[in-house]
Structure formats: structure tokens, C-alpha cells
Simulated assay, not measured.
Amino acid sequence: MKRLLAWICGLLSAIGITACDYINVKELKPGVSTAVEVRERFGPPHMEWRNEDGSLTWEYSRQPEGIECFMITIGPDQILRSIDQVLNEGTFARVERGMNADQVRRLLGKAASSQFFALKQETVWEWKIDHGEASGGDAVFFTVSFNTDGRVTGTGRYTRYRGR
């Protein structure tokens, strides 16, 4: 039964439904769980990065409708090292002017959307970071702006107000 639940959660998360993330994160144990168990629960990663120490970091973004992005690090021994939900104030503060798009993707995962603004000659990526529970139903987004050289020029946030 537990294996069936893990399979269902993996399938749902692969298509962007995150109801099982809470269960998956609680049941996977750094230092104990294996890479195979992570894949069974979360499905295939959206992106994979090789780290200098031989470990791998797998990206599991829940954008555009979710408000989370999990970066899961697997050691060279195929044992889970860490699970980090990176859409948070600490990670946002690490985005700096001059970073390129790959560096930002590595920090925050795939953006919910990207839009080019011709008059300003900039591209803006955005991540949904709050469904709006705290603001009466209005979703909140974190943004990163890039110049035409693909370098960060700034960050921000905005609230998408619903008609009332």
C-alpha cells in the first residue's frame, strides 16, 4: 500500500499536482533514503546539476501553479543529502546584479513565466511565491529582470490583484 501511495504521489507530482509533496518530504530522510526512493516519490527531475563534490542536485519545480521548488541533493553514494524548498527570502537575497540566467535557474528553479518588454529591452522571469492566503486571495510573485546581455539588473515582487 505504501509503495502504491508513493507511485501515485510520484505520478501526480510529475504532472504538477503537489498534494503529496508534504508527505514525500516528511518520509524521505537525509542520510538514509536513496536516489531510487526520491525518484519513486518525486518522479524524474526537471533539471539535474552536477556539483563539484560529485553529488547531484535535482530540481523539482511546482511552477506555474505551485509555490515551491525543491532542490534535492543526492551524494555520489546515491544517498539523499538534503531537500531544500528554495523559493524563500534567503534564496531570493542571493540573486545578484550581473548573474546570468543559468545561475538564477540554479538558485530558484524554472520560472513560472518569462516575458520580454520591448520598450525597456528587458526580460522578466517570475515565480509564484504565495497563493494569496495572507493577502485575501491575491497571488504574490517574485521577479528577476535581465538585460539584453542576459544579466540580472534587478529583482522585485508584485501582487496580482483579483477583481473584487
Results as ranks from 00 to 15, higher is better:
Ile129Pro: 00
Ala111Lys: 03
Asn51His: 04
Asp130Phe: 02
Val152Tyr: 00
Thr91Tyr: 10
Leu119Glu: 14
Asp84Val: 15
Ile72Phe: 11
Phe92Leu: 04
Leu56Asp: 01
Ser114Asn: 07
Arg162Met: 09
Ile129Ala: 00
Gln85Met: 15
Gln63His: 01
Met71Ile: 06
Pro64Thr: 10
Asp102Trp: 14
Ser61Ile: 00
Gly10Ile: 04
Glu65Thr: 07
Ala14Tyr: 04
Ser114Trp: 07
Lys128Tyr: 01
Arg151Leu: 14
Lys110Gly: 11
Val140Gln: 09
Leu119Trp: 14
Thr159Lys: 06
Gln78Val: 10
Asn147Trp: 08
Asp138Thr: 04
Tyr158Ala: 00
Leu87Pro: 10
Glu133Val: 08
Leu56Ser: 03
Pro76Phe: 05
Asp77Arg: 06
Glu122Asp: 02
Ile15Pro: 07
Gly156Val: 05
Glu96Arg: 15
Lys128Ile: 00
Val38Ser: 04
Leu56Asn: 02
Leu56Lys: 10
His131Phe: 01
Trp127Asn: 00
Asp102Ala: 12
Gly163Met: 13
Gly98Thr: 12
Asp102Pro: 07
Leu5Trp: 13
Arg97His: 11
Leu56Cys: 01
Leu119Arg: 10
Arg97Val: 11
Ser61Met: 01
Leu5Ile: 12
Thr159Ala: 06
Gly98Phe: 02
Val95Gly: 05
Arg94Glu: 15
Glu89Val: 07
Gln63Glu: 07
Thr73Tyr: 00
Thr153Tyr: 01
Ile79Asp: 05
Asn24Leu: 10
Val124Ile: 08
Arg105Met: 08
Gly163Pro: 03
Arg39Asp: 12
Gly132Cys: 03
Gly136Cys: 11
Leu107Trp: 14
Gly137Tyr: 10
Arg164Cys: 06
Leu12Cys: 11
Gly163Val: 09
Glu37Thr: 07
Arg151Ile: 12
Leu108Tyr: 08
Arg97Ile: 12
Ser61Arg: 03
Asp138Ser: 12
Pro76Val: 11
Ile15Val: 15
Glu52Gly: 08
Thr148Phe: 05
Gly137Phe: 13
Ala112Pro: 00
Val86Met: 07
Thr91Gly: 03
Gly109Cys: 05
Gln78Pro: 01
Asn100Arg: 06
Glu68Asp: 13
Phe116Ile: 01
Ser61Cys: 02
Lys120Cys: 04
Pro45Arg: 08
Val140His: 03
Tyr60Thr: 01
Ser13Thr: 14
Leu107Val: 14
Lys120Leu: 09
Leu11Gly: 13
Leu80Ser: 09
Asp84Arg: 15
Ala35Gly: 11
Arg39Pro: 07
Leu5Asn: 11
Val104Gln: 02
Gly136Lys: 05
Ser13Leu: 08
Val124Ala: 00
Gly16Met: 07
Cys69Lys: 08
Glu126Cys: 00
Val38Cys: 09
Ala35Pro: 06
Lys110His: 13
Glu89Trp: 03
Thr123Phe: 00
Val38Asn: 08
Val95Thr: 14
Ile15Lys: 10
Ala93Pro: 04
